[in-house]
Write a protein that binds this DNA or RNA. Structure first.
Lengths: 195, 195, 195, 195
DNA sequence: TATGAATGAGCCTTCATTCAT
DNA sequence: GATGAATGAAGGCTCATTCAT
C-alpha cells in the first residue's frame, strides 16, 4: 500500500457518493469513478465496502471532536463553551453538507450494522458536552441536580434534528442563525435557579 | 385479494424483521417467514418491498399522531400537554421497541429514498408540538419571542435522541424515567420570564 | 367436468389473448379474465397451459382442414380445387385474424415444443394439397415429373408468407386480392407443358 | 468492456442454445455455460436477454443479405440470380442448421415482440429478391404484369417452408436437392409468356 | 501499484398450479 | 362445479469482490 493520499481520496469520494444516494444505493464502482480511480484499486486500501463507511465515520468523527475540543479550549466559561459547541456544530454542517448528510442519515444504520465501529468516536463528542455541563454545575451556573446524561442527549438531539431538517429540507435558510436560539433555550433550561 | 388482516400481519412481521436486520439487510422471504406465509403471498398485498416500508411508515406515523392528539385532547394547560406528549412518546417507544427501532433507524433513509412518502405524517407530529407551543405563547406561559419552529425541532430531536440511545443501547433503564427530566428542562428553556 | 361449452370458451379466449401477446407473454389468468371465468376454473378443463395451446392447434387445424375438404368437394377440376384452396385460405385468415395470428406465429414454436402435437392435423392440410396436385398430374394438367412434396410445401409456404405479412403488417389491403395472383403464378409454375 | 470477441462468442452460444430449446425455454445461464463464461459476464456485453436475440437477428440477417448480394453480383442474367439466391438460401440453411432453426422459429415471435428490431434486415432480403424480379421484367424474361411484391413473398415463403420442414423434420435428405425444383417451378410461374 | 474484466452468490418478483371454501 | 387466495419454484439481473495482466 503505497500512496498515502489514496485512502483519503476514497473517503472523500465516498462521502459525496453516499450523500447523494445513501450507502446501500451506492456501488463501489460509483465511489471509484468519483475518486477517479478503478474499482479494484479501492480494495488495495479497504477490505470491504463496509470498511469504507466505518473508516469514514471514525476519521470524520475524530476530526470533528478534535475541532470541538480546540474550539472550546480557549474559553473559560462553561456557558460560553456550550455556545461555541453549538455554533461550531452548525458551522460544520453548513461547511460540509455532504459529510453532514452521510453522518445524519447513515450514522444510525451504521451504529447498528457496522458493529458500532464509530461508537467510541461518537461517544467522545457526548463526553465533551457532558464534561462541559459538569463544569457548569461545579461553577454554579448550571443547576446541580441536572441529569447530565439526559441533558447531553437532549442537546445533541436538538442540534442533530435542526441539522437533519436543514439537510433534508431545501436548505433555504442559514442554519447558523438557529444556533443562538438553540443555545438560549437550552442554557435557560439547564441554568441554575439563581442565574 | 380478500383477507383484510393480511396486510396488517405483513406490516407487523416487517416491523420485527426490519428492527432485527434493517431494511436493506432483510429479505422479502424473511418477512414472509416471520408472517407465517409464503413469499409470493406478500405480492398479493404489496407491489414491491419498498411499498411495505412506505406503508409501514405511513400507517404507524398516522396512528402515532392520532394517539398523541387523543392524549392531549383532555388537557387544557399547554404545559401539561407538552408533558403528556413527552410521556406518551417515551411510553410508546418502550411499548413497541421494534417499531421504535424501525422508525428511528429507517426513517431518515426513508425520508430520502422512499419519496418522502411519510413526510406528511411526520410533519403532522411536528404540527401538534408547534401548535401546543403557540398555545402556550398565547396563554403567556411560554415566552412570546420563542422561535417556535426551532423549539419544536429541539423538543422532537431531544426525544428522538433519548429514544435512539435507549433503543440502540442495552435498554438497561426505564426510558419513561427520562420523560420528566426532558419535560422539566425543555419547559424551563421556553418558559416566559415571569413564570 | 360438466359444462361442455367451457373448453370452447376457453380456447376462443386463449386465441384472442395469444394473438395479442403471444403464448409466453400470456398468463393463464389473462385467458381466464378474457373468458370471464376464474383462473382455477381453467384447470377443470385443461391440465396445463401447454394443453390449451395444443388443443387449440388440434381443434382449429382439424376444423380448417374440414372446411377445405368441403370447399373442394364440389369441384371436379384439380386446378379449380387449387384455386379454391388458396381463396379459402386467405378468406379464413381475413375472417379470423386472431386465430391466424396465433397459428402463424405460434405454430412453429408449437411444432417444436409441444411435442408436435398438431403434426397430424397440419400434415392433413398438406395431404389435401398434395392429393389435389396428384390428381392434376393424373388429369394431365400438371406436369407429370412434378416433385409433389416440394410443390406442396411451396404452395403452403407461399400462402403462409402472404398471410404472415398481412397479419404482421398493417393489414392495409385485402388479402383476398392476392389469392388470384398466387394461384396464377403457382399453377403456371406446375402446369403441364402443353397447357 | 474490452474483449471484442466476447459478444460474438455469446451470440454463437445463444444460437445453439435457442436452437435447442427456443428463446423462452433458454436461461441466460444456459447461454453462459454454452459460451464457457459466467452468467454475469453476459451482462457486460448485453443489457438484457432480449437484446441478445435482437442483436443475433440483426447481425445474422445483415450477414446473410451481404452474402446474397455477393453471390448474385457476378451474375448478369436475372433468372440466374434467382437460381443462385435459392441455391444459396438452402446451402446456408444446411451449413448453419442451428442458426436456421433460430431464425425460422423465433423470427416471427421476434418480429412481434422484440420491437421489429430486425425488420430492416429482413426487408433488405425481400428487396434483393424484388429488385431481381424487376430486373427480369425489364429484361423481358419475366412477365411484365407480374405483381412483384406478391411474387417476392411467394418465393421467400416457399424457400422458408422448405427450410422449416427440413429443420423441424429429420433432415433425412439433402435440402439442396430441392433448390433446383423450387427454382424451376417458381421461374416457370413468373416467366414471360413467350419464353 | 493499478486496472477493469470476470465471477457467481444472492434476491426480488412472476406466475403456473393447487386446494380450501 | 367454481372460485381466487395461497404457494413456491424458477430465473433475470446486480454488484461486491477477485485476479490476471
Amino acid at each position: 500500500m503505497r500512496d498515502p493520499e489514496k485512502p483519503h481520496q476514497i473517503i472523500e469520494a465516498a462521502i459525496r457518493v453516499f450523500a447523494r444516494n445513501g450507502y446501500y444505493n451506492s456501488r463501489v464502482s460509483d465511489i471509484a469513478r468519483e475518486a477517479g480511480i478503478a474499482a479494484g484499486t479501492i480494495y488495495l486500501y479497504f477490505r470491504t465496502k463496509d470498511e469504507i463507511l466505518v473508516t469514514l465515520f471514525r476519521e470524520k468523527m475524530a476530526e470533528w471532536v478534535g475541532l470541538v475540543r480546540e474550539e472550546i479550549a480557549g474559553a473559560r466559561d462553561p456557558l460560553e463553551k456550550i455556545r461555541r459547541i453549538v455554533a461550531l456544530h452548525f458551522r460544520m454542517i453548513e461547511a460540509h453538507p455532504a459529510l453532514a448528510e452521510v453522518v445524519q442519515v447513515e450514522l444510525r444504520q451504521g451504529q447498528k450494522f457496522f458493529r458500532g465501529a464509530s461508537a467510541r468516536e461518537v461517544s467522545a463528542y457526548f463526553d465533551v458536552i457532558a464534561d462541559t455541563l459538569e463544569e457548569g454545575v461545579l461553577a454554579g451556573q448550571i443547576k446541580k441536580e441536572l441529569p447530565v446524561k439526559v441533558a447531553t442527549k437532549m442537546l445533541f438531539g436538538a442540534m442533530d434534528q435542526l441539522a437533519t431538517s436543514w439537510v433534508l429540507g431545501r436548505r433555504g435558510y442559514r442554519l447558523s442563525d438557529a444556533a443562538e436560539h438553540v443555545t438560549t433555550i437550552f442554557l435557560k433550561g439547564v441554568s441554575a435557579d439563581g442565574v
